[in-house]
Design a protein around this nucleic acid. Structure first.
Lengths: 206, 206
DNA sequence: GCAAGACATACTACTCAGTATGTTGTCAAT
DNA sequence: ATTGACAACATACTGAGTAGTATGTCTTGC
Protein backbone atom coordinates (compact mmCIF):
# COMPACT_ATOMS: atom_id res chain seq x y z
CA UNK A 1 0.00 0.00 0.00
CA UNK A 2 2.66 2.41 1.08
CA UNK A 3 4.82 1.45 -1.89
CA UNK A 4 1.92 2.37 -4.13
CA UNK A 5 1.67 5.88 -2.79
CA UNK A 6 4.14 8.70 -2.38
CA UNK A 7 6.68 7.48 0.17
CA UNK A 8 5.70 10.12 2.71
CA UNK A 9 2.53 12.12 2.56
CA UNK A 10 3.09 15.82 3.06
CA UNK A 11 1.75 17.38 6.22
CA UNK A 12 -0.44 19.67 4.15
CA UNK A 13 -1.97 16.82 2.20
CA UNK A 14 -2.62 14.92 5.41
CA UNK A 15 -4.27 17.98 6.91
CA UNK A 16 -6.49 18.32 3.87
CA UNK A 17 -7.56 14.68 4.09
CA UNK A 18 -8.44 15.06 7.76
CA UNK A 19 -10.47 18.20 7.04
CA UNK A 20 -12.18 16.52 4.10
CA UNK A 21 -13.15 13.53 6.25
CA UNK A 22 -14.74 15.79 8.85
CA UNK A 23 -16.62 17.92 6.33
CA UNK A 24 -17.76 14.89 4.33
CA UNK A 25 -18.99 13.38 7.61
CA UNK A 26 -20.86 16.55 8.64
CA UNK A 27 -22.43 17.57 5.33
CA UNK A 28 -22.42 14.36 3.33
CA UNK A 29 -19.89 13.58 0.60
CA UNK A 30 -22.10 14.94 -2.19
CA UNK A 31 -23.45 18.01 -0.44
CA UNK A 32 -20.03 19.12 0.85
CA UNK A 33 -18.22 21.38 -1.61
CA UNK A 34 -14.52 21.91 -2.11
CA UNK A 35 -15.10 25.43 -0.82
CA UNK A 36 -16.62 23.99 2.38
CA UNK A 37 -13.50 21.95 2.98
CA UNK A 38 -11.25 24.91 2.20
CA UNK A 39 -13.19 27.05 4.70
CA UNK A 40 -12.77 24.32 7.33
CA UNK A 41 -9.02 24.53 6.68
CA UNK A 42 -8.99 28.32 6.75
CA UNK A 43 -7.64 28.38 3.20
CA UNK A 44 -8.96 28.36 -0.35
CA UNK A 45 -9.69 25.63 -2.84
CA UNK A 46 -6.57 26.49 -4.82
CA UNK A 47 -4.65 24.78 -2.05
CA UNK A 48 -6.78 21.67 -2.32
CA UNK A 49 -6.57 21.48 -6.11
CA UNK A 50 -2.83 21.76 -5.89
CA UNK A 51 -2.70 18.44 -4.04
CA UNK A 52 -5.77 16.65 -5.47
CA UNK A 53 -6.81 16.64 -9.11
CA UNK A 54 -10.53 16.67 -8.36
CA UNK A 55 -13.13 16.34 -5.65
CA UNK A 56 -13.58 12.72 -6.67
CA UNK A 57 -9.88 12.04 -6.24
CA UNK A 58 -9.94 13.69 -2.82
CA UNK A 59 -12.91 11.57 -1.73
CA UNK A 60 -11.24 8.43 -3.01
CA UNK A 61 -8.04 9.21 -1.12
CA UNK A 62 -10.08 9.72 2.05
CA UNK A 63 -11.61 6.27 1.54
CA UNK A 64 -8.27 4.63 0.89
CA UNK A 65 -6.81 6.19 3.99
CA UNK A 66 -9.72 4.94 6.07
CA UNK A 67 -9.28 1.43 4.71
CA UNK A 68 -5.61 1.59 5.59
CA UNK A 69 -6.31 2.56 9.18
CA UNK A 70 -8.27 -0.55 10.00
CA UNK A 71 -6.35 -2.96 7.79
CA UNK A 72 -3.08 -2.13 9.51
CA UNK A 73 -4.52 -2.74 12.97
CA UNK A 74 -6.47 -5.90 12.22
CA UNK A 75 -3.94 -7.68 10.03
CA UNK A 76 -1.48 -7.53 12.94
CA UNK A 77 -3.59 -9.53 15.37
CA UNK A 78 -4.43 -12.50 13.15
CA UNK A 79 -2.77 -15.71 14.30
CA UNK A 80 -3.09 -18.54 11.76
CA UNK A 81 -2.72 -21.08 14.58
CA UNK A 82 -5.48 -19.60 16.72
CA UNK A 83 -9.07 -20.83 16.72
CA UNK A 84 -11.32 -18.87 14.31
CA UNK A 85 -13.57 -17.54 17.05
CA UNK A 86 -10.54 -16.31 18.99
CA UNK A 87 -9.09 -14.68 15.88
CA UNK A 88 -12.40 -13.08 15.02
CA UNK A 89 -12.76 -11.72 18.54
CA UNK A 90 -9.26 -10.26 18.41
CA UNK A 91 -9.85 -8.76 14.99
CA UNK A 92 -12.97 -7.01 16.23
CA UNK A 93 -11.18 -5.87 19.38
CA UNK A 94 -8.58 -4.28 17.09
CA UNK A 95 -11.07 -2.98 14.54
CA UNK A 96 -13.59 -1.20 16.72
CA UNK A 97 -11.27 1.10 18.70
CA UNK A 98 -9.53 2.10 15.49
CA UNK A 99 -12.89 2.88 13.90
CA UNK A 100 -13.84 5.04 16.88
CA UNK A 101 -10.46 6.77 16.79
CA UNK A 102 -10.85 7.63 13.11
CA UNK A 103 -14.62 7.98 13.07
CA UNK A 104 -14.97 10.70 10.41
CA UNK A 105 -13.12 8.50 7.94
CA UNK A 106 -15.40 5.57 8.65
CA UNK A 107 -18.53 7.63 8.37
CA UNK A 108 -17.26 8.54 4.92
CA UNK A 109 -16.64 4.86 4.21
CA UNK A 110 -20.19 4.12 5.25
CA UNK A 111 -21.56 6.75 2.87
CA UNK A 112 -19.56 5.52 -0.08
CA UNK A 113 -19.76 1.78 0.58
CA UNK A 114 -22.44 1.20 -2.07
CA UNK A 115 -20.25 3.18 -4.44
CA UNK A 116 -19.11 6.70 -5.03
CA UNK A 117 -21.86 8.43 -6.96
CA UNK A 118 -20.67 10.73 -9.69
CA UNK A 119 -22.48 11.54 -12.90
CA UNK A 120 -19.19 11.43 -14.73
CA UNK A 121 -15.77 10.17 -13.74
CA UNK A 122 -12.22 10.43 -15.02
CA UNK A 123 -10.05 7.40 -15.64
CA UNK A 124 -7.99 8.33 -12.59
CA UNK A 125 -11.13 8.29 -10.48
CA UNK A 126 -12.28 4.99 -11.93
CA UNK A 127 -8.88 3.50 -11.16
CA UNK A 128 -9.13 4.78 -7.61
CA UNK A 129 -12.61 3.31 -7.26
CA UNK A 130 -11.18 -0.05 -8.29
CA UNK A 131 -8.41 0.26 -5.71
CA UNK A 132 -10.97 1.09 -3.04
CA UNK A 133 -13.02 -1.92 -4.04
CA UNK A 134 -9.93 -4.14 -3.96
CA UNK A 135 -8.94 -2.81 -0.53
CA UNK A 136 -12.42 -3.48 0.75
CA UNK A 137 -12.42 -7.03 -0.63
CA UNK A 138 -9.00 -7.64 0.88
CA UNK A 139 -10.15 -6.43 4.28
CA UNK A 140 -13.46 -8.29 4.21
CA UNK A 141 -11.48 -11.31 3.08
CA UNK A 142 -9.72 -11.37 6.44
CA UNK A 143 -13.09 -11.83 8.15
CA UNK A 144 -14.43 -14.16 5.51
CA UNK A 145 -11.43 -16.45 5.95
CA UNK A 146 -12.03 -16.79 9.69
CA UNK A 147 -15.75 -17.33 9.12
CA UNK A 148 -15.02 -20.11 6.65
CA UNK A 149 -12.45 -21.76 8.90
CA UNK A 150 -14.94 -21.57 11.76
CA UNK A 151 -17.71 -23.16 9.72
CA UNK A 152 -15.31 -25.88 8.52
CA UNK A 153 -14.09 -26.56 12.08
CA UNK A 154 -17.62 -26.62 13.44
CA UNK A 155 -16.90 -23.70 15.75
CA UNK A 156 -19.36 -21.55 13.80
CA UNK A 157 -22.65 -23.02 12.65
CA UNK A 158 -23.04 -24.02 9.01
CA UNK A 159 -25.01 -21.30 7.27
CA UNK A 160 -25.13 -19.11 4.19
CA UNK A 161 -21.79 -17.37 4.07
CA UNK A 162 -22.97 -14.11 2.50
CA UNK A 163 -25.78 -13.62 4.98
CA UNK A 164 -23.52 -14.49 7.90
CA UNK A 165 -20.53 -12.41 6.83
CA UNK A 166 -22.40 -9.26 5.97
CA UNK A 167 -24.70 -9.50 8.95
CA UNK A 168 -21.69 -9.82 11.21
CA UNK A 169 -19.76 -7.00 9.53
CA UNK A 170 -22.72 -4.64 9.77
CA UNK A 171 -23.08 -5.48 13.44
CA UNK A 172 -19.38 -4.83 13.98
CA UNK A 173 -19.61 -1.46 12.24
CA UNK A 174 -22.78 -0.39 14.01
CA UNK A 175 -20.92 2.15 16.18
CA UNK A 176 -20.14 4.12 13.04
CA UNK A 177 -23.83 4.96 13.01
CA UNK A 178 -24.58 5.77 16.61
CA UNK A 179 -21.29 6.53 18.37
CA UNK A 180 -20.30 10.12 18.96
CA UNK A 181 -17.38 10.88 21.26
CA UNK A 182 -18.47 12.76 24.34
CA UNK A 183 -16.46 14.64 26.89
CA UNK A 184 -18.40 12.99 29.74
CA UNK A 185 -18.08 9.52 28.25
CA UNK A 186 -17.13 6.88 30.83
CA UNK A 187 -13.56 5.73 30.93
CA UNK A 188 -13.07 2.61 28.90
CA UNK A 189 -16.33 3.01 26.99
CA UNK A 190 -14.56 2.45 23.66
CA UNK A 191 -13.22 -0.82 25.02
CA UNK A 192 -16.65 -1.81 26.32
CA UNK A 193 -18.12 -1.16 22.87
CA UNK A 194 -15.38 -3.29 21.31
CA UNK A 195 -15.80 -6.15 23.79
CA UNK A 196 -19.57 -6.29 23.64
CA UNK A 197 -19.54 -6.00 19.86
CA UNK A 198 -16.99 -8.82 19.57
CA UNK A 199 -19.06 -10.92 21.93
CA UNK A 200 -22.28 -10.33 19.98
CA UNK A 201 -20.56 -11.03 16.66
CA UNK A 202 -19.12 -14.37 17.82
CA UNK A 203 -22.46 -15.39 19.31
CA UNK A 204 -24.31 -14.44 16.15
CA UNK A 205 -22.18 -16.93 14.22
CA UNK A 206 -22.08 -19.70 16.83
CA UNK B 1 -49.95 7.71 10.00
CA UNK B 2 -52.64 7.46 7.38
CA UNK B 3 -54.83 9.93 9.19
CA UNK B 4 -51.98 12.37 9.06
CA UNK B 5 -51.66 12.18 5.33
CA UNK B 6 -54.13 12.65 2.52
CA UNK B 7 -56.68 9.85 2.92
CA UNK B 8 -55.78 8.32 -0.43
CA UNK B 9 -52.58 9.03 -2.28
CA UNK B 10 -53.11 9.66 -5.97
CA UNK B 11 -51.75 7.08 -8.37
CA UNK B 12 -49.53 9.71 -9.94
CA UNK B 13 -48.02 10.72 -6.61
CA UNK B 14 -47.40 7.10 -5.76
CA UNK B 15 -45.72 6.54 -9.11
CA UNK B 16 -43.49 9.55 -8.51
CA UNK B 17 -42.46 8.24 -5.08
CA UNK B 18 -41.60 4.83 -6.54
CA UNK B 19 -39.53 6.44 -9.29
CA UNK B 20 -37.83 8.73 -6.80
CA UNK B 21 -36.90 5.78 -4.59
CA UNK B 22 -35.30 3.96 -7.51
CA UNK B 23 -33.39 6.99 -8.79
CA UNK B 24 -32.27 7.97 -5.29
CA UNK B 25 -31.09 4.41 -4.80
CA UNK B 26 -29.18 4.34 -8.11
CA UNK B 27 -27.58 7.79 -8.08
CA UNK B 28 -27.60 8.74 -4.43
CA UNK B 29 -30.12 11.13 -2.90
CA UNK B 30 -27.90 14.18 -3.32
CA UNK B 31 -26.52 13.41 -6.78
CA UNK B 32 -29.91 12.55 -8.26
CA UNK B 33 -31.69 15.58 -9.71
CA UNK B 34 -35.38 16.25 -10.09
CA UNK B 35 -34.77 16.05 -13.84
CA UNK B 36 -33.29 12.57 -13.38
CA UNK B 37 -36.44 11.41 -11.63
CA UNK B 38 -38.66 13.05 -14.26
CA UNK B 39 -36.71 11.29 -17.01
CA UNK B 40 -37.17 7.96 -15.21
CA UNK B 41 -40.91 8.66 -15.25
CA UNK B 42 -40.91 9.72 -18.89
CA UNK B 43 -42.23 13.12 -17.89
CA UNK B 44 -40.89 16.53 -16.82
CA UNK B 45 -40.19 18.10 -13.47
CA UNK B 46 -43.28 20.25 -13.73
CA UNK B 47 -45.22 17.12 -12.89
CA UNK B 48 -43.10 16.44 -9.84
CA UNK B 49 -43.30 20.02 -8.55
CA UNK B 50 -47.05 19.91 -8.91
CA UNK B 51 -47.22 17.17 -6.30
CA UNK B 52 -44.15 17.97 -4.16
CA UNK B 53 -43.10 21.43 -3.07
CA UNK B 54 -39.38 20.69 -3.29
CA UNK B 55 -36.79 17.97 -3.74
CA UNK B 56 -36.38 17.88 0.03
CA UNK B 57 -40.10 17.31 0.52
CA UNK B 58 -40.04 14.52 -2.07
CA UNK B 59 -37.11 12.83 -0.35
CA UNK B 60 -38.81 13.14 3.02
CA UNK B 61 -42.01 11.59 1.69
CA UNK B 62 -39.99 8.69 0.27
CA UNK B 63 -38.50 8.14 3.74
CA UNK B 64 -41.86 8.30 5.46
CA UNK B 65 -43.32 5.81 3.03
CA UNK B 66 -40.44 3.44 3.64
CA UNK B 67 -40.89 3.69 7.38
CA UNK B 68 -44.57 2.95 6.94
CA UNK B 69 -43.91 -0.21 4.94
CA UNK B 70 -41.97 -1.95 7.68
CA UNK B 71 -43.91 -0.53 10.63
CA UNK B 72 -47.19 -1.90 9.29
CA UNK B 73 -45.76 -5.38 8.84
CA UNK B 74 -43.86 -5.64 12.10
CA UNK B 75 -46.40 -4.05 14.42
CA UNK B 76 -48.89 -6.76 13.36
CA UNK B 77 -46.80 -9.68 14.58
CA UNK B 78 -45.99 -8.45 18.08
CA UNK B 79 -47.71 -10.48 20.78
CA UNK B 80 -47.41 -8.89 24.23
CA UNK B 81 -47.84 -12.36 25.79
CA UNK B 82 -45.08 -13.99 23.78
CA UNK B 83 -41.50 -14.41 25.00
CA UNK B 84 -39.20 -11.55 23.88
CA UNK B 85 -36.97 -13.80 21.81
CA UNK B 86 -40.00 -15.25 20.02
CA UNK B 87 -41.39 -11.79 19.40
CA UNK B 88 -38.06 -10.53 18.15
CA UNK B 89 -37.71 -13.48 15.81
CA UNK B 90 -41.21 -12.89 14.43
CA UNK B 91 -40.54 -9.18 14.03
CA UNK B 92 -37.43 -9.87 12.01
CA UNK B 93 -39.23 -12.52 9.96
CA UNK B 94 -41.78 -9.84 9.10
CA UNK B 95 -39.26 -7.03 8.66
CA UNK B 96 -36.73 -8.62 6.33
CA UNK B 97 -39.04 -9.81 3.51
CA UNK B 98 -40.75 -6.41 3.51
CA UNK B 99 -37.36 -4.71 3.28
CA UNK B 100 -36.41 -6.91 0.34
CA UNK B 101 -39.76 -6.28 -1.33
CA UNK B 102 -39.34 -2.50 -1.04
CA UNK B 103 -35.56 -2.41 -1.32
CA UNK B 104 -35.16 0.94 -3.13
CA UNK B 105 -37.01 2.65 -0.30
CA UNK B 106 -34.77 1.09 2.31
CA UNK B 107 -31.61 1.94 0.44
CA UNK B 108 -32.85 5.52 0.61
CA UNK B 109 -33.51 5.10 4.32
CA UNK B 110 -29.97 3.85 4.74
CA UNK B 111 -28.55 6.89 2.96
CA UNK B 112 -30.56 9.35 5.01
CA UNK B 113 -30.39 7.61 8.38
CA UNK B 114 -27.69 9.95 9.74
CA UNK B 115 -29.84 12.81 8.53
CA UNK B 116 -30.96 14.46 5.33
CA UNK B 117 -28.17 16.78 4.30
CA UNK B 118 -29.29 20.09 2.88
CA UNK B 119 -27.44 23.36 3.05
CA UNK B 120 -30.73 25.12 3.67
CA UNK B 121 -34.15 23.85 4.58
CA UNK B 122 -37.69 25.18 4.67
CA UNK B 123 -39.89 24.91 7.73
CA UNK B 124 -41.98 22.29 5.93
CA UNK B 125 -38.84 20.24 5.36
CA UNK B 126 -37.73 20.61 8.98
CA UNK B 127 -41.16 19.48 10.12
CA UNK B 128 -40.92 16.45 7.85
CA UNK B 129 -37.45 15.65 9.18
CA UNK B 130 -38.92 15.65 12.68
CA UNK B 131 -41.71 13.30 11.60
CA UNK B 132 -39.16 10.99 10.03
CA UNK B 133 -37.15 11.02 13.22
CA UNK B 134 -40.25 10.32 15.28
CA UNK B 135 -41.25 7.45 12.99
CA UNK B 136 -37.79 5.99 13.27
CA UNK B 137 -37.83 6.23 17.07
CA UNK B 138 -41.25 4.65 17.19
CA UNK B 139 -40.13 1.75 15.01
CA UNK B 140 -36.85 1.22 16.84
CA UNK B 141 -38.86 1.42 20.04
CA UNK B 142 -40.63 -1.78 19.07
CA UNK B 143 -37.30 -3.59 19.02
CA UNK B 144 -35.95 -1.78 22.05
CA UNK B 145 -38.98 -2.84 24.06
CA UNK B 146 -38.42 -6.53 23.28
CA UNK B 147 -34.71 -6.18 24.00
CA UNK B 148 -35.48 -4.64 27.39
CA UNK B 149 -38.07 -7.26 28.27
CA UNK B 150 -35.61 -9.95 27.26
CA UNK B 151 -32.84 -8.53 29.40
CA UNK B 152 -35.26 -8.17 32.33
CA UNK B 153 -36.52 -11.75 31.90
CA UNK B 154 -33.00 -13.10 31.59
CA UNK B 155 -33.71 -14.43 28.10
CA UNK B 156 -31.21 -11.97 26.67
CA UNK B 157 -27.92 -11.35 28.44
CA UNK B 158 -27.52 -8.19 30.46
CA UNK B 159 -25.50 -5.74 28.42
CA UNK B 160 -25.30 -2.14 27.27
CA UNK B 161 -28.63 -1.48 25.61
CA UNK B 162 -27.39 0.99 22.98
CA UNK B 163 -24.60 -1.27 21.81
CA UNK B 164 -26.90 -4.28 21.75
CA UNK B 165 -29.85 -2.61 20.06
CA UNK B 166 -27.93 -0.86 17.31
CA UNK B 167 -25.66 -3.82 16.67
CA UNK B 168 -28.70 -6.03 16.29
CA UNK B 169 -30.58 -3.55 14.08
CA UNK B 170 -27.60 -3.12 11.77
CA UNK B 171 -27.28 -6.88 11.48
CA UNK B 172 -30.96 -7.16 10.67
CA UNK B 173 -30.70 -4.48 7.98
CA UNK B 174 -27.52 -5.89 6.47
CA UNK B 175 -29.36 -7.19 3.37
CA UNK B 176 -30.11 -3.58 2.42
CA UNK B 177 -26.40 -3.33 1.66
CA UNK B 178 -25.69 -6.54 -0.18
CA UNK B 179 -28.94 -7.96 -1.46
CA UNK B 180 -29.91 -7.45 -5.08
CA UNK B 181 -32.83 -9.40 -6.50
CA UNK B 182 -31.73 -11.80 -9.20
CA UNK B 183 -33.74 -13.66 -11.79
CA UNK B 184 -31.82 -16.88 -11.04
CA UNK B 185 -32.17 -16.48 -7.29
CA UNK B 186 -33.15 -19.73 -5.55
CA UNK B 187 -36.76 -20.13 -4.52
CA UNK B 188 -37.28 -19.10 -0.94
CA UNK B 189 -34.01 -17.18 -0.71
CA UNK B 190 -35.76 -14.18 0.78
CA UNK B 191 -37.17 -16.43 3.50
CA UNK B 192 -33.75 -17.98 4.07
CA UNK B 193 -32.27 -14.51 4.51
CA UNK B 194 -35.01 -13.63 6.97
CA UNK B 195 -34.64 -16.86 8.97
CA UNK B 196 -30.88 -16.81 9.17
CA UNK B 197 -30.88 -13.10 10.03
CA UNK B 198 -33.46 -13.64 12.78
CA UNK B 199 -31.43 -16.55 14.08
CA UNK B 200 -28.21 -14.54 14.14
CA UNK B 201 -29.91 -11.57 15.79
CA UNK B 202 -31.40 -13.64 18.60
CA UNK B 203 -28.08 -15.42 19.16
CA UNK B 204 -26.20 -12.15 19.21
CA UNK B 205 -28.33 -11.04 22.15
CA UNK B 206 -28.51 -14.33 24.00
C1' DG C 1 -68.44 27.81 -20.58
C1' DC C 2 -65.58 27.95 -16.80
C1' DA C 3 -62.65 26.53 -13.10
C1' DA C 4 -59.26 23.73 -11.52
C1' DG C 5 -55.98 20.08 -11.61
C1' DA C 6 -52.24 17.97 -13.91
C1' DC C 7 -49.11 18.34 -16.52
C1' DA C 8 -45.18 20.51 -20.17
C1' DT C 9 -42.20 24.24 -21.49
C1' DA C 10 -39.35 28.14 -20.86
C1' DC C 11 -36.82 30.77 -17.82
C1' DT C 12 -33.97 32.52 -13.76
C1' DA C 13 -30.60 32.67 -10.30
C1' DC C 14 -27.42 30.37 -7.88
C1' DT C 15 -24.01 26.91 -6.67
C1' DC C 16 -20.35 24.34 -7.86
C1' DA C 17 -16.25 21.98 -9.97
C1' DG C 18 -12.59 23.06 -12.12
C1' DT C 19 -9.25 26.28 -14.55
C1' DA C 20 -6.31 30.21 -15.40
C1' DT C 21 -3.50 33.44 -13.52
C1' DG C 22 -1.00 35.81 -9.94
C1' DT C 23 1.83 35.93 -5.69
C1' DT C 24 5.00 34.43 -2.30
C1' DG C 25 8.42 31.73 -0.20
C1' DT C 26 12.01 28.37 -0.49
C1' DC C 27 15.89 26.31 -2.35
C1' DA C 28 19.71 25.45 -5.28
C1' DA C 29 23.05 27.07 -8.41
C1' DT C 30 26.22 30.55 -9.67
C1' DA D 1 24.53 38.21 -3.01
C1' DT D 2 21.74 37.25 -6.77
C1' DT D 3 18.83 34.83 -9.75
C1' DG D 4 15.78 31.53 -11.52
C1' DA D 5 12.89 27.57 -10.93
C1' DC D 6 9.41 25.53 -8.64
C1' DA D 7 6.05 24.33 -5.17
C1' DA D 8 2.33 25.91 -2.60
C1' DC D 9 -0.75 28.52 -2.16
C1' DA D 10 -4.66 32.69 -3.19
C1' DT D 11 -7.67 35.03 -6.34
C1' DA D 12 -10.54 35.60 -10.25
C1' DC D 13 -13.04 33.51 -13.70
C1' DT D 14 -15.84 30.15 -16.62
C1' DG D 15 -19.22 26.93 -17.92
C1' DA D 16 -22.42 23.53 -16.64
C1' DG D 17 -25.84 21.76 -13.87
C1' DT D 18 -29.50 22.33 -10.77
C1' DA D 19 -33.59 23.76 -7.92
C1' DG D 20 -37.25 26.15 -8.32
C1' DT D 21 -40.61 29.46 -10.66
C1' DA D 22 -43.62 31.43 -14.14
C1' DT D 23 -46.43 30.63 -17.78
C1' DG D 24 -48.94 27.95 -21.11
C1' DT D 25 -51.79 23.96 -22.53
C1' DC D 26 -54.87 20.27 -22.11
C1' DT D 27 -58.30 17.54 -19.88
C1' DT D 28 -61.92 16.81 -16.85
C1' DG D 29 -65.84 17.74 -14.10
C1' DC D 30 -69.62 20.56 -12.95
Amino acid sequence: MKDQMAPVMSASKSEILDAAAVVFMDLGVDVASIDDIARHLGSTKGRIYHHFASKGVLLSEVCLRAADFTYRKVALVIDPDAAPDKNLRNMILAHVPEVLRTLPYHKVIRQTYPGINQKSTTQVERDLHQRIHAERDRYEGLFRAELRRGMTDGIFRQQNETIALHGMLLLVNAPVIWYTPRADEPEGFALEIARQTADMAVRALS
